[in-house]
């Protein structure tokens, strides 16, 4: 009797295990009736692929004031100095100051058509003026064995996140989006990024960072259509304390990325600004000489 019971229990477990595999595979098929489970890649990890939008209102931390809530970024003296310089003298009433309306836009790299850089690409994306400056992203994630690709709508900026076990190179050139490596911690993809150029800002408000900025992101597909990205910024030069905020994105399969995602058409800038001689920065209406050195 006991032998027969054990045999039955074994088969119940086996059938259950087999049907979980079948269900998981069904979740990978488009249009499957019960495809609300988080899809899995062939290696068993959650599949983060998809077009994701949103993330304008992160929780846990605020780079800049948002309505009546103050910002939670804590700066070093160095960071505070840069911030004050970028904001310029406080003209206008307290309301304007509070809403961040008086940043010196001529110092904002985005007005000079610099690439945004990893942090400002977000989520949230920091390109608009006023309020916290945060807006939602649209991005496509393509997960493959060994690499996760993220393509942002904004300037179609591309991130390569290597998940093949490699380390950051010893001799690392600083780039706009840094060097990113990812490792799975259970069902969370932990992405570590270093090697960021310091010519970018953290947001629209004038917060800067140094080349020692270290970004750790935790990607978690908490449900079929929700992706959470918890991002922690550490910078011993610019930030007195690590800054963490979590953005939540929504799966948006009907949204197409397109080419003209950037708010300011930097083509105008390019037309007027030849390599040789001088040119006009039509975004700011100022005359900018260039070296012509090439």
């Amino acid at each position: 009797m006991r032998k027969r019971f054990r045999s039955a229990a074994f088969w119940v477990v086996a059938v259950f295990a087999f049907s979980s595999v079948v269900l998981a595979q069904a979740a990978q098929q488009p249009g499957a009736a019960d495809a609300k489970l988080v899809p899995r890649a062939p290696d068993g990890k959650p599949d983060l692929s998809g077009t994701w939008t949103g993330g304008a209102r992160p929780t846990g931390g605020r780079l800049a004031p948002q309505h009546s809530d103050p910002g939670t970024l804590e700066l070093t003296e160095w960071g505070e100095g840069k911030f004050k310089w970028n904001r310029g003298p406080e003209i206008g009433d307290a309301e304007d100051v509070y809403r961040g309306q008086h940043v010196r836009t001529e110092y904002d790299p985005v007005y000079h058509c610099y690439p945004l850089g990893l942090v400002r690409l977000g989520p949230p994306l920091y390109i608009i003026r006023g309020g916290s400056g945060a807006t939602g992203v649209t991005m496509a994630i393509i997960q493959t064995p060994g690499k996760v690709l993220i393509i942002h709508q904004y300037r179609n900026s591309v991130r390569h996140i290597y998940t093949d076990g490699r380390e950051h190179p010893k001799a690392l050139e600083n780039t706009w989006n840094g060097h990113s490596i990812g490792r799975w911690d259970g069902d969370t993809l932990v992405v570590d990024t270093v090697g960021l150029r310091d010519e970018s800002w953290l947001d629209t408000g004038g917060h800067e960072h140094s080349t020692q900025l270290h970004v750790v992101e935790r990607f978690r597909r908490v449900s079929y259509d929700t992706l959470e990205i918890e991002r922690t910024l550490t910078d011993p030069i610019a930030l007195a304390k690590p800054f963490t905020a979590t953005a939540s994105l929504m799966l948006s399969p009907d949204v197409d990325l397109n080419e003209n995602g950037q708010q300011y058409d930097c083509t105008q800038f390019m037309v007027r600004k030849p390599f040789f001689g001088e040119g006009e920065n039509t975004l700011l209406g100022i005359h900018e000489p260039t070296t012509g050195a090439y």
Partner: peptide
């Protein structure tokens, strides 16, 4: 190479972006 700290004169240049 336009986006370096010191690019000739002007805002990319004498002051440099983020070079206050």
């Amino acid at each position: 190479q336009h986006y370096g700290r010191k690019v000739g004169f002007g805002f990319g240049g004498v002051l440099g972006i983020n070079n206050h």
